[in-house]
């Protein structure tokens, strides 16, 4: 007979007994020892049918294939660029993946991306040795110039984006700023004036701080309405 020892959506701590018996299956962040399932990291317990999973709440970003991230160019190589991904591992952007146009061998790579440039890129491959390859081919992937960057907890990124991007578009409507959120916890904000950018930054920080309290969208809406000087604009600009 299997028995669940912890309720769903509670905070669990490493080593905590989650379930006994063979009726449940350990998934991400949990492990089985004999006939019991234990927590293998700190986080929120998620139960999906018989599968027990832990959703992380803290920790650094680990590159994962398919993620869209914001990275900074740190070095120019013979055949591409090395970028900082805000994680323990650096990534390589090869010449082939850098742009849709053909880059001649031996061309001056700084014409495309200079050291210090930020790019929105996609992680295409991560090896077992954690060698990361990124690509600039894809919709919305580009060099980011101007604006400002801020660091957020990577596990709060889904809250900042919201359901189908609802949270980001809410902020965009009120501040008229361009916002791009990378899975690695870097956020790029660019607006017409500094005040709008500052408000956006404040709103994002507020989301990060209060992500766990219910009614987040309403609170952010209220916050933006009481603080923004301009009238909310309906999304008309094509920029995502």
């Amino acid at each position: 007979m299997g028995e669940l020892l912890v309720k769903e959506k509670t905070i669990v701590v490493p080593g905590e007994e989650l379930a006994s018996g063979m009726d449940f299956l350990p998934s991400h962040g949990t492990y089985r020892e004999n006939d019991k399932i234990y927590a293998g990291k700190l986080g929120l317990l998620n139960i999906d049918g018989k599968v027990l999973k832990i959703v992380s709440l803290s920790g650094r970003y680990l590159p994962k294939s398919g993620d869209t991230i914001i990275a900074k160019v740190t070095e120019i190589l013979m055949t591409g660029w090395r970028v900082d991904t805000n994680s323990a591992y650096e990534a390589v952007l090869s010449m082939k993946e850098a742009s849709s146009e053909f880059i001649q061998r031996g061309a001056d790579l700084t014409k495309y991306y200079e050291i210090g440039d930020y790019v929105m890129a996609k992680v295409v491959n991560v090896t077992s040795q954690k060698l990361v390859d990124i690509s600039m081919k894809g919709p919305g992937l580009r060099k980011l110039s101007g604006g400002r960057f801020l660091n957020v907890n990577t596990h709060k990124v889904p809250r900042i984006i919201g359901k189908q991007g609802s949270m980001v578009s809410l902020i965009k409507q009120h501040t008229n700023c361009k916002i791009l959120v990378g899975q690695n916890g870097l956020v790029w904000v660019s607006g017409e004036n500094p005040d709008a950018e500052l408000l956006t930054v404040k709103a994002i920080k507020k989301i990060e701080l209060e992500a766990h309290i219910p009614g987040l969208t309403d609170r952010i809406k209220k916050f933006l309405e009481s603080n923004s000087t301009q009238k909310p604009v309906e999304q008309s600009q094509g920029e995502q």
Partner: peptide, 11 residues
């Protein structure tokens, strides 16, 4: 270590 979200089997 637990607070840093590092994967660990126990405390």
């Amino acid at each position: 270590l637990a607070d840093a979200g590092i994967s660990m089997k126990d405390m």
